[in-house]
Design a binder for these strands. Structure first.
Lengths: 335, 335
DNA sequence: CTGAAAGCGCTTACAG
DNA sequence: CTGAAAGCGCTTACAG
């Protein structure tokens, strides 16, 4: 009954206090001042539960990611949370650990908590889990789910743009012999990147030599072994792109181990722009995954859905090359 | 009015439905069954806002950390969230970016959201911010705040234990000449680690040579330059401990750059056990900061405080050495 | 063992 | 421009 205390103190009704708090027009200036003073004096803060119960909105958003330990996500979380916080929205955040069953539970829990909207920023998504939200009438937004993009708002990243820029850069440095460290065939996001790479390669009029594709597990270790294979080729590529930064870091280590200098003897380009790539030597040139922008677009989608606007349901973002020190002109040595 | 629908369907009052949902004893088995069926048939889920409004508890915990981008935190978040989730508690989580003003706001926001309890897992804490929670009667728990430990529940980590184990290990390998990469003098957590190192050193009967202490900025870059200084000493240490893993990684890079082999020519030990240390070559031996356990103890403290138990208000945890490949016996070379 | 009813703290037609 | 009152969906003494 706390709004009542404020009301008494200001000599008005609770309705008026409510109006002042929510910035409704049509309250006399003098009354507003009186209410504001009473609020200040009592340190009054509205009870969000009462408010939510009444309004049917909680100002609570759900954010679901794959894995807190994956250094890809912190920036995305950070950006999403900053936007929410600026709007007075709180974020409940959970991770699925790549487990579809957990995704299902995460969504259920969030609906039970009556969040206003959910951003599902995981790489693998099963539609069945999403239907819970549809049924509960909770807006959703996905990331990079091309197959579901027709039915659900989706923020997607056009990998090919990034690979195109990387290839522009390498070609300008004189590279023609370009290797690729791919990800596991079963991982759809890895396959998406591979396809985009091939597409960009073709657009640049380059051949794809099958022996210059090695496959890794998306982690440092996998990049190391994949790179070892590429380095053993004869002829070997003069530049290598990796599906993600962790494997690019592994590739760098493999080169070091083989006493092949980066970038002098071979150029390496990663993908994602994780914090780690500027911590290794040399700092890696990489294609930045626009994850902050993904968070922004996702947040916008949800807000718009809540406001009943139907226009902006999806967005496409483009990754860009970030130059650091792991690429150099093709040496004369191999010419 | 949704519990009413269930009640009607089961031919009971809402009170009885509520009793069944909350597992109160003393409802006839047959009635329970009827209510359960009605709940299942209607897919009924209690409205948490109504519940919170009535009960004065939200089953919402706040978790405040310094920095999402700091790879120290994900495991802590993960552990905390898993415990909460198992108890049907949701976590609102924010970060301060090392800014005391933001900590103040984070705590205020959480109180306004009427969380049941708050874990403040940041390195720097100003007491004034905490008083908001005290005033609002919201239980708190801190991490490694010795100065505040008398007034607030606190989970602290006894760094000296970890350094002691590291020194045991190095002595067993024949090392006597041990260098240290310290952190900035103004950073209290870095100073705490330095003091603990000195203490452990003394306990092992070793001298501290002032020129074998170099200072870095707690990041990879700082570790690199600090290590370069240590390597330039004559005589130089045969083993180096770093205040944190990021600087240990930098130290490793500096050794590589100087063509000094790790661990053959020099041993390196880090602190924290970040994921990154097993991604570099060689994987670093390090002292593991028990951050999962910190999360567990913190969560327990909060739960107990909520249950009105006064016994367990603080806890002390011990870091332990994790052996990997960056240490080796002192070479004969330097004998 | 169960129900009727009050009340948690708000917001919002409705009336004036 | 402002107030009286209903109602959001629960839980919990109280009564039987």
């Amino acid at each position: 009954m706390d709004i009542l205390q404020v009301a008494k103190r200001a000599n008005v009704s609770t309705a008026t206090v409510s109006r002042v708090i929510n910035g409704f027009p049509g309250v006399r200036e003098k009354t507003v001042a009186r209410v504001r003073r009473a609020i200040a004096e009592t340190n009054y803060v509205p009870n969000p539960n009462a408010r939510s119960l009444r309004m049917g909105r909680t100002r609570l958003f759900g954010l679901i990611i794959s894995d807190v330990n994956n250094p890809f996500f912190p920036e995305l979380i950070d950006a999403f949370e900053a936007l929410a916080s600026a709007e007075g929205i709180e974020v409940i955040f959970t991770h699925t650990n790549y487990d579809p069953q957990r995704l299902h539970n995460c969504i259920r829990r969030m609906i039970e908590r009556s969040v206003d909207a959910i951003a599902v920023m995981t790489s693998e998504v099963e539609e069945e889990s999403l239907r819970q939200a549809v049924k509960a009438n909770v807006p959703l937004v996905l990331m990079n789910q091309r197959k579901l993009a027709a039915k659900y708002p989706n923020v997607s990243v056009e990998y090919a743009t990034g690979f195109g820029e990387a290839l522009d850069h390498l070609l300008a440095l004189g590279h023609r012999d370009i290797g690729f460290i791919a990800g596991p065939p079963l991982l759809s996001s890895a396959q998406g990147r591979k396809e985009a790479f091939k597409k960009a390669l073709k657009a640049h009029g380059l051949q794809l030599r099958p022996e210059w594709i090695a496959t890794g597990d998306m982690r440092v270790e996998g990049g190391r072994t994949a790179m070892a294979k590429l380095l053993a080729c004869d002829p070997r590529p003069t530049a290598v792109l990796a599906t993600n930064d962790l494997m690019a870091v592994g590739a760098l280590q493999a080169a070091h181990a083989a006493h092949i200098r980066v970038p002098k003897d071979i150029s390496i380009i990663g993908f994602d722009d994780l914090p780690i790539v500027s911590m290794v030597q040399p700092p890696l040139t990489t294609i930045r995954h626009p994850r902050r922008e993904v968070a922004e677009q996702a947040f916008d989608c949800l807000q718009q859905a809540l406001q009943g606007k139907k226009n902006k349901t999806s967005a496409t973002l483009h990754p860009h090359l970030v130059l650091r020190n792991s690429t150099a002109p093709v040496g004369l040595r191999r010419r």
